[in-house]
């Protein structure tokens, strides 16, 4: 892979170039080898399963032997009246999650980084990442209890400070589903996701702070001019990865938060596939929708990667 691109020197024959290449790079290849082998065995070998999206499943003849159906199962999804609604709902949830949820841990990391009181800093830092360990099932039970009409403490608090209209049933309002889903998601993962930024901030060269001090910059300016650029590459990489995950709106939480009233906003691709397969597993249909999902995700990843490389010089590949 890429061997031929190596070394711009001319006048050497291929064998010799190879030799030089290996002399220089064999250690790097060796360091990559375990990972490459693992990925090959556990990810590439099973990949023949992808063709199931184009075939009928047949147990006797295996994945590779079922009847070739071409794009039948893709068409089944595209032509379904639920295609547009599920795609739309998925996009809305995912985009809102990124717009609101992506900056949150960055800001949190910056704030934590600025806390001067060491004890308080430790307390905050340790507390914010605990929600990550709460299972989705419990999270949703808590949402249902804390936001219940009339009896929910948090719901009532939000109504008392007029953030939410008095007669709105937060759990049952279609328009409240996305904010509720996204904000509880931010609550749960903000602290956990901030860890990587906090770590990145810790690697900022401290001499830069001193230099900035001497220039008379205040803390805000220091943060903006030194901290932020220092973690920008990390931010960009994570943004790319997030964009590449855009259609993977987690099944569990949406499914558990679904109720008849919010179905108009909460029926997403993964819950729809589940509904289709609930009585008899529709392997090929699921595989086709999954592949469609993946393809869209991949396009988003490549696109964001390209834009990021152009704008900031940071990219995955």
């Amino acid at each position: 892979m890429g061997k031929n691109r190596e070394t711009g020197e001319t006048g050497l024959n291929a064998g010799e170039r190879m030799k030089r290449y290996w002399a220089h790079n064999w250690q790097l290849w060796l360091m990559l080898l375990p990972g490459i082998i693992y990925i090959f065995v556990f990810c590439y070998v099973p990949m023949y399963g992808v063709q199931l999206a184009f075939r009928d499943y047949s147990f006797t003849s295996g994945i590779t032997g079922g009847k070739w159906e071409g794009f039948k199962y893709f068409r089944q999804y595209f032509e379904s009246p639920m295609f547009i609604p599920t795609l739309r709902n998925t996009f809305i949830i995912a985009l809102t999650s990124i717009v609101v949820g992506f900056p949150a841990p960055i800001i949190l990391a910056m704030i934590i980084n600025q806390i001067r009181n060491t004890k308080w800093k430790k307390i905050v830092q340790t507390t914010v990442y605990i929600p990550y360990f709460i299972s989705v099932v419990v999270l949703v039970s808590m949402i249902n209890i804390l936001f219940a009409n009339d009896s929910g403490v948090v719901g009532n608090f939000l109504k008392a400070i007029h953030l939410v209209g008095q007669d709105i049933n937060i759990l049952g309002k279609e328009s409240a589903f996305v904010p509720l889903y996204v904000l509880t998601g931010v609550w749960q993962s903000m602290g956990w996701n901030s860890i990587i930024f906090i770590a990145a901030l810790s690697s900022v060269d401290t001499q830069l702070y001193d230099a900035c001090k001497i220039d008379g910059a205040n803390r805000w300016q220091t943060m903006w001019n030194i901290d932020f650029p220092a973690i920008l590459p990390t931010i960009m990489i994570l943004l790319i990865l997030n964009m590449g995950n855009i259609l993977n709106v987690g099944f569990d939480k949406v499914f558990l938060m679904q109720n008849s009233l919010n179905l108009g906003a909460s029926q997403v691709i993964s819950t729809y596939v589940y509904t289709v397969g609930i009585k008899s597993s529709q392997f090929s249909f699921g595989a086709a929708v999954g592949l469609f999902n993946t393809a869209i995700n991949f396009v988003f990843l490549l696109l964001t990667n390209y834009l990021s490389k152009k704008a900031t010089g940071t990219g995955l590949m």
Partner: peptide, 17 residues
């Protein structure tokens, strides 16, 4: 998780042979 998700979707590619 995406692998888990696909459990419902891609699952079921068996080869009895």
């Amino acid at each position: 998780l995406s692998a888990a998700m696909l459990a419902g979707t891609l699952a079921g590619c068996g080869s009895a042979s």
